[in-house]
Amino acid sequence: MPTRVYIQSEYFPDIKFVEVNDEATVAELKHAALALLPPGTEAFDLTLSVEDDDDDAHSHSIQVKHLKKEHGVRVHLHRCKQVEVKVCFGAEVVHHKFRPATTVGRVRLWAGEKLGMAPGDIAEHVLQIAGTTEQPDVDIHIGSLTKYSQCEVAFDLVPAHRING
């Protein structure tokens, strides 16, 4: 049975997808994902990581069907193995290294907890790329916001826009 796998990468601005068989291995999935890269991209140092997964690496022999989560299979293809994230909230600053497939939503929850915010207060804030007005969606991978060799991104934690009425 085919499975649609959503892929984000430092190499393309939009989410792309491939369809692979449930029985396909992670190595076969990576091969299919590499085919989406722009021509001339050197792919020997790219790492495939699973969205919001804390494992350092999945065995290349694991089957795609074992990667399925509530929203399907979502992966990230990046040269950085980890992304240094800095979140500023007023005068407070927290730092942590995340895998490129970590979502902006997960980083927001982590930052709010580290800053001692209540869950309801975290929900009323968004991450905004420092020095800009850009507020990436919660399902964007942080690896999409940085390129190798920078491997870092800085955010401000700001109140979400409220629509009254």
Rank of each mutant, 00 (worst) to 15 (best):
M1G: 02
M1P: 01
P2A: 14
R4H: 06
V5C: 08
Y6E: 08
I7P: 00
I7H: 05
I7T: 02
Q8K: 09
Q8H: 08
S9P: 09
E10A: 12
E10W: 00
F12E: 03
F12V: 07
P13V: 08
D14I: 13
D14R: 12
I15V: 15
F17V: 12
E19F: 08
E19M: 08
N21Y: 06
D22Q: 09
D22G: 08
D22R: 10
E23L: 06
T25K: 14
A27S: 12
A27C: 07
E28Y: 03
E28A: 15
L29E: 04
K30W: 03
A32I: 05
A32Q: 11
A35N: 15
L36A: 11
L37R: 13
G40Q: 09
G40A: 10
E42I: 10
E42A: 11
E42F: 09
A43G: 01
F44M: 15
D45A: 13
L46P: 01
L46W: 06
L48I: 02
L48K: 04
S49L: 00
V50A: 00
V50F: 03
V50H: 01
V50G: 01
V50D: 02
E51G: 07
D52Y: 10
D54E: 13
D55L: 14
A57G: 13
A57C: 10
H58F: 14
S59F: 12
I62K: 13
H66L: 12
H66E: 14
H66F: 11
L67C: 04
L67N: 04
L67T: 03
K68D: 00
K69N: 07
K69I: 04
E70I: 06
E70A: 08
H71I: 03
H71M: 03
V73Y: 14
R74K: 10
R74P: 02
L77E: 02
H78T: 01
R79I: 00
K81H: 00
K81N: 03
Q82R: 05
Q82T: 02
Q82F: 03
V83P: 01
V87H: 02
C88S: 12
F89P: 00
A91R: 09
A91G: 01
V93R: 08
V93A: 13
V94M: 02
V94D: 04
H95D: 06
H95V: 11
H96V: 01
R99I: 14
R99C: 02
R99V: 08
P100N: 11
P100K: 05
A101P: 01
A101N: 04
G105S: 12
G105T: 04
G105V: 00
V107T: 06
R108D: 01
R108F: 01
R108M: 10
W110P: 06
W110C: 11
E113H: 11
K114F: 00
L115H: 10
M117I: 05
P119K: 14
G120P: 03
G120R: 10
G120T: 07
D121R: 10
D121A: 07
I122N: 05
I122H: 09
A123Y: 04
H125V: 09
T132S: 14
T133N: 08
E134W: 09
Q135P: 00
Q135H: 05
D139H: 11
I140V: 15
H141F: 09
H141M: 11
G143T: 09
G143R: 04
L145K: 02
L145M: 06
Q150R: 08
Q150A: 11
E152N: 12
V153N: 04
F155Y: 05
D156S: 12
D156A: 07
H161P: 13
R162D: 12
G165A: 09
